[in-house]
Design a protein around this nucleic acid. Structure first.
Ligand code: FES
Ligand code: FES
Lengths: 152, 152
DNA sequence: TTAAAAAAAGATATTTGTGTCCTTTTTTGC
DNA sequence: GCAAAAAAGGACACAAATATCTTTTTTTAA
């Protein structure tokens, strides 16, 4: 469905929105640990997301790091996909035709268009903050289980 | 959503089911032309689909080519994805966590699971023949518009 | 039985995605 | 100012996906 790049972009952004703020910026080390992703690769992805402060804001130097502004928190999840150039997932033909259209539909179009519509809705109508809120309801995760957990 | 490999696999299989039969097998040249795909690469993909006659049947030599048995026509579209090892699209976590589960859900899980369910339905409940039937209703396409069409 | 046709198989090339590492720039606090 | 911290940027490495080309095997029909 999505590339590793997009997956890390989504997880990293959620993590930063979740744990960071302008007063408490997060470093790449912590972010990569928090979402189980390769550190340097994630750094590269965050560069894409910080271009023009589109989604993520960053400050260099001591006490620097990444955070999300209130404006950014209101952005749709789609904004993250756009930053990594993968928003086309919500417009493409499932069979890979150059165009997905009603006037020149593929044999799966009728079925797939409903799914695509919901995908579109999900990415366009859900804000980053909504995902944070969802997470904060408890028992949600953005990392992988690592090692063995001690029984309580 | 899907790789080029999967897209070509789907289009090629539909094309063969559509235009071919045991009496009229199709050559790779025609297939690639019919679905707008690179010939040699498509040949490789058809090799995956013909392993053990899983989805596509083939015969070498003069008058040889590709076709679908009646059994194969009844297979779900998912069988094509399985042949190219891409059926995981209907089970994976949208944020790329190792497991998608109710017990360890990501913040998009609640929304995405409905979409995933429909994707699963589409690929599992739709047979190859159903796509052929859909196509045969008319005004469906499996190739790209090429060149300029003369006005009528 | 041989030549031709066609897919299968193998080898290789190219591009893209994923990932790491090193250097540079910016920022801060002393 | 200076040293340290942190992101930004650049260069490189490796793997996977995409694509092409050549050789081999199978099959048919003349
Ligand atoms: S044309 Fe294929 S999904 Fe719309
Ligand atoms: S856990 Fe992420 S989609 Fe189910």
């Amino acid at each position: 469905m999505l590339s590793k790049t997009a997956e890390y972009a989504l997880r990293a952004t959620i993590y930063i929105a979740l744990k960071g703020s302008e007063e408490n910026k997060l470093g790449i080390e912590e972010i990569a640990l928090g979402i189980d992703s390769p550190k340097s690769f994630t750094a590269k992805i965050l560069q894409l997301l910080t271009q023009n402060n589109r989604v993520i804001s960053s400050v260099r130097g001591p006490n620097g790091g990444f955070y999300l502004t209130d404006r950014a928190r209101k952005l749709p999840v789609k904004a993250i996909l756009e930053a990594v150039e993968e928003a086309s997932v919500i417009t493409k033909c499932v069979l890979g035709l150059k165009e997905c259209s009603e006037t020149r539909p593929c044999p799966m179009h009728t079925q797939y268009k409903n799914i695509k519509k919901q995908l579109k809705q999900m990415f366009e109508k859900t804000s980053i903050q909504q995902l944070v809120d969802e997470f904060n309801k408890g028992n949600y995760f953005i990392d992988n289980l690592k090692g063995v957990r001690k029984p309580c």
